[in-house]
Amino acid sequence: MEAVIQKVEKEILEILAENPDHFLVEIKIKPTNNIRVFIDGDKGVGIGDLVKYNRNLHKVLEEAGFFPEGDFSLEVSSPGLGEPLKMRRQYQKNIDRFVEIIKEDGSKIEGKLLQVNDSEIIVEETKGKGKKAETITHTVSFQDIKSTQIQIKF
């Protein structure tokens, strides 16, 4: 499957080259030849763009004969809020949003994503409420992050 993923990645990257604000996040292929391609954008990605990418990639995959029997399905979507952040560009576009970080050591940090650079992120965590609230700023290296999820706060 890894060879197929690499071929699909090459093709979708060529398609995405038309719009540098959009980027590939991940490709998953199930044993049933269900291909799931996750695309994000620095300013989000619209449904119209996702439909266009799906049609273009489907045509390329059919013409290239990656699945000789033609027995594949293709889904092109943006990662949902339930999907963890995987790329620095995703962190960048989510500055000022609340995140939950699970570190490699199993510890958890919940707070507002303030900054992102090439090697680390800065998160502001508030513990307690009212006058007893304490703000702690965490600098977390990307290599220490196991997963990061966007948190919805109302």
Score class of each variant (00 low, 15 high):
Lys28Glu: 13
Lys28Gly: 09
Lys28Pro: 08
Lys28Met: 11
Asn33Tyr: 00
Asn33Gly: 03
Asn34Phe: 06
Val37Gly: 03
Phe38Val: 02
Phe38Asp: 00
Asp40Ala: 07
Asp42Ile: 11
Lys43Gln: 13
Gly44Glu: 09
Gly46Phe: 08
Gly46Glu: 14
Ile47Thr: 06
Gly48Ser: 05
Asp49Val: 04
Leu50Lys: 03
Val51Leu: 10
Lys52Val: 10
Lys52Arg: 13
Tyr53Asn: 07
Asn54Cys: 14
Asn54Ser: 15
Arg55Asp: 09
Arg55Pro: 08
Asn56Lys: 15
Asn56Leu: 14
Leu57Ala: 11
Lys59Asp: 13
Lys59Ala: 10
Val60Gln: 06
Val60Asn: 09
Val60Glu: 13
Ala64Thr: 14
Ala64Leu: 11
Ala64Ser: 14
Gly65Gln: 05
Gly65Val: 08
Phe66Pro: 07
Phe67Glu: 11
Pro68Lys: 07
Glu69Phe: 06
Glu69Arg: 10
Gly70Leu: 05
Asp71Lys: 03
Phe72Pro: 03
Glu75Ser: 04
Ser77Phe: 05
Ser78Gln: 06
Pro79Trp: 02
Pro79Asn: 00
Pro79Thr: 04
Leu81Met: 15
Leu81Glu: 02
Gly82Ser: 15
Gly82Ile: 08
Lys86His: 04
Met87Gln: 09
Met87Asn: 10
Arg88Gln: 14
Arg89Pro: 12
Arg89Thr: 11
Tyr91Cys: 08
Tyr91Asp: 10
Lys93Tyr: 09
Lys93Arg: 15
Asn94Ile: 07
Asn94Arg: 05
Asn94Cys: 10
Asn94His: 14
Asp96Thr: 14
Asp96Asn: 15
Arg97Ala: 15
Phe98Met: 13
Val99Phe: 12
Val99Gly: 09
Val99His: 14
Glu100Trp: 07
Glu104Ser: 13
Asp105Gln: 03
Gly106Met: 09
Lys108Trp: 04
Ile109Lys: 00
Glu110Phe: 05
Lys112Ser: 03
Lys112Asn: 01
Leu113Gln: 00
Leu113Gly: 02
Gln115His: 13
Val116Asn: 08
Val116Cys: 07
Val116Trp: 13
